[in-house]
Design a binder for these strands. Sequence first.
RNA 1: GGGCGUGUGGCCUAGCGGAUCAGGGCGAGGGGUUCCUAACCCCUCGAUCGCGGGUUCGAAUCCCGUCACGCCCGCCA
Length: 585
Amino acid sequence: MFRQFRDSVAVALTEALESLELPSADLGIEEPPEDLPATLASSVAFRLAGEMGAAPPQVAQTVADAIDPDGVDYLSAVDTQGPYVNFHTNDAYLADTLETAQADSYGRLEDQKTSVVVEHTSANPTGPVHVGRARNPIVGDAVANLLDFAGYDVDRHYYVNDAGRQMAVFTWAYETFDETALEDEPARDRVEYDLVRYYRKGNHFLENAEPAEVEAAEAEITSILQGLEAGDEAAYERVGTVVDQVLGGMKDCLARLPAAFDEFVKETRFMRDGSTTAVADRLKESEYAVYEEDAWQLDLSAHGFEKNLVFLRSDETSLYTTRDLAHHEWKFDNYDRAVTVLGEDHKLQAGQLQAALEILGNDTDRLDDVIYSYVNLPEGKMSTRRGTGVMLDDLLDESIDRAREEVESRLDDRIRNDDLDADDIDRIAHQVGIGAVRYDIVSKQPTKAITFEWDRALDFEAQSAPYVQYVHARCCGILDEADTMPELGAIDPAALSDPAAIDLLRTIARFPAVVEAAADEHKPHIVATYTREFAEAFNGFYRECPVLSADDPAVRDARLALVSASKHTVANALSIIGVAAPDSM
RNA sequence: GGGCGUGUGGCCUAGCGGAUCAGGGCGAGGGGUUCCUAACCCCUCGAUCGCGGGUUCGAAUCCCGUCACGCCCGCCA
């Protein structure tokens, strides 16, 4: 109801200002500090003071007097406090919130009639997913969930870089070396842990072998790349053998988060269908194209980039960005909007891509990037090639193990006699363990650098996933024990008179606005912050207001409805950030 | 050298022009459970928001400068 209230206040305030013949371009509507009773406030008086030749508090009073609360949705009264005009909600605001939030889908926004493709992760299929890039699937999945919940028609894509030099090296190494030549056993019984050993072996060979041997290897690698460029079916198959296996393993790892994709889009697709060549041809025709040092380049100085972007090598083969151009035009053909989640190291490339897309005549306003910083180890960067780094699988395992210990240590002093069995313990360990990892990452602004430390990443204390998950479990516990749910029509919202209950209901009322703001800015961490605020509000209510043992049946029913609304709110907020909502824990 | 990003109490973090807004959390110290799960709650200690200027009625928030850290500046991806 918060969004509706905000809209109606904006209209009322605009009309009031117009009636006073004052400018209404900047309404200055904001949320007042927590300890004030008003739901919304306006700071227009500051800006109008000069124009009216009066002090801000007086201006505020004049404006407030010009608004008649009657007929304005959810508005009960307008008053002032110093220079601020404050807007208070009426009973219907809370009553409608309580009723609306009874729906499982509470918070989901209206259909935006817009399709959007969210591309995330897109890690080269060279080996196991490590924590350094784990931010990508976690943030990416949350962004996709968020847009979906905000009413967009979302597809999730993983762009597979299967045409680059790295994959050619990998393919050559896989075909060349015998398993007996590999030094270590796979770190884990899954295909990408097995095959990455060939990749590392190959890279090691190229860096250390005799020049003649390296030259021969390079010739083979080049022939693979040229085969791909020439549309040679055998080359696709050779590379595909490696790519599909490794990708399959990575997919299994990502599924643990869980992060799932609607489509894995291979870049070779845009070589095979001729669109990459077509893009290059069109670029050649553009006014920004230059042919220097035997290679076709784009002069992007007018777009703010110092150096030229090479889009065709001297041997006529395409580069990553050229293929990505064809890829993005394909996105534009099939979707209204495109969001890409990518590491800060790709930022320059993304900017060049966007400039080139504009040169090709695309409307790049349809494209948005979400940039995140890599997670580094205290001793430096993680690297698949060098085999340094913490694997996401290991992080998840460790987190689940610690969560399991936590559950087991709590079993003895559980008050609730719901007899958790082995399956429950396993379920809770997974929900909490994986939830904690995701929450830790999704709750921070992605642009902030993170240095990975086990204990910090696996903290189950307050302001973490379990803190919020526990609120959901409490809701379920109460609803479970209440034999019947009251009829919607039988609920009297007025029975919720305690400050803690009203505070909770007001927090619930804000949820759709939080979803809207987070989706508009592609910032799932806003939802994570909200879950924490929500949990605090709920815990306050839980402490102050007994539900099942409430003496007055009307109070009990109203509180029960509030718990139900709370459950939907927290469950949906958690689902957006990809954290499981346990029924018990 | 240039570009982009980050800089909030011992540590992590929210806020990113508006009201005693410097908010949470961890850590430290002290309390709370015959009552819907104490992975909870309450209290105390602790920050002039990297530093210096400027704009503004008002700046952690905007501008300029400066320092520190990260990322990038390939006919790699």
